[in-house]
């Protein structure tokens, strides 16, 4: 049997980056095969948004009013997009925790694989599935009357902001996943669910008590959702507060801040895993 010869360990930053990207490509390929071969996950991806749209759009929507008037379902859809981006964290946390518990992470770490590459692989896979989530959800939205009134460019910009939030949250998910057991990861939705409601997702902050309104308006999710409503031309824009007036800036700033904090934390945690 002829033994393969390993290439020399890279020394220049450019080579290291090339290797990290090649590792990321291989790892994301694995994650995507998982996703494609798991019919339950696909069904979830397709059905969950549809159920949520019908539930909130029609069941709750019949009793909801939008501050400043307008169609509730048009108001709701940007909120649903944002909530879906946040809920994506749950699957990130779970997969990362499961890989660590099953020894997959240990094998990666005992190999000369770039740690940044492995984590980027996770990010790429999550971003691709989230993009698909978003596309499906937008199609659902079109069916119930949501429209992007300011044209394709603005709509794409809004989608970009949503995915930027998702990108930042993937790093939060990796960080949490590396600390939790898969069982613990299953409980990740518990703190997330209220966080997605203490925002402008389903109810205009103007209709909330003053103290709650402040929390809701400064919630990073609200910034993204408010920015999307601006870009889509949806009804029910909040107004008055600084946060509401600078939604687009905040929708870029919050995710960048989260990434700056959690990306290095994730890489550090990954390198020092000592369970």
């Amino acid at each position: 049997m002829s033994m393969p010869i390993a290439p020399a360990i890279p020394t220049t930053p450019a080579e290291r980056l090339r290797w990290a990207l090649s590792d990321a490509w291989v790892v994301s390929g694995r994650e995507l095969i998982h996703w494609v071969r798991n019919p339950v996950v696909i069904l979830n991806t397709l059905l969950f948004p549809l159920i949520m749209v019908l539930l909130f759009g029609y069941v709750f929507g019949s009793a909801m009013r939008v501050a400043g008037g307008g169609d509730y379902r048009e108001f709701l859809m940007p909120g649903m997009f944002g909530q879906t981006m946040v809920f994506g964290v749950i699957s990130t946390v779970y997969v990362v925790a499961a890989n660590a518990a099953r020894g997959v992470t240990d094998r990666f770490r005992s190999m000369p694989v770039s740690s940044f590459g492995v984590l980027m692989g996770r990010v790429i896979a999550d971003m691709l599935t989230s993009t698909l989530d978003l596309v499906i959800l937008m199609l659902c939205g079109l069916l119930v009357g949501w429209r992007a009134h300011h044209g394709l460019g603005s709509a794409l910009a809004a989608a970009g902001l949503l995915l930027l939030l998702r990108f930042a949250l993937v790093w939060v998910g990796i960080c949490m996943g590396l600390r939790l057991t898969p069982e613990g990861a299953g409980a990740a939705w518990m703190p997330l669910f209220p966080l997605t409601l203490l925002a402008n997702t389903f109810v205009s902050p103007e209709l909330m008590p003053a103290w709650l309104r402040i929390i809701a308006e400064w919630n990073p999710l609200s910034a993204t959702v408010q920015a999307c409503r601006e870009l889509f031309g949806s009804p029910g824009l909040s107004g008055g507060s600084w946060a509401a007036e600078h939604a687009i800036e905040l929708a870029i700033g919050w995710p960048l801040l989260i990434t700056v904090i959690f990306l290095p934390l994730s890489i550090r945690r990954y390198r020092r895993l000592n369970r």
């Binding site: 390993a6 095969i33 071969r37 094998r107």
Partner: peptide
Amino acid sequence: YRIGLAGQQTSVDEI
């Protein structure tokens, strides 16, 4: 580059 590790759990991918 010079080691192999097979841990207590098999880290092979079931899917």
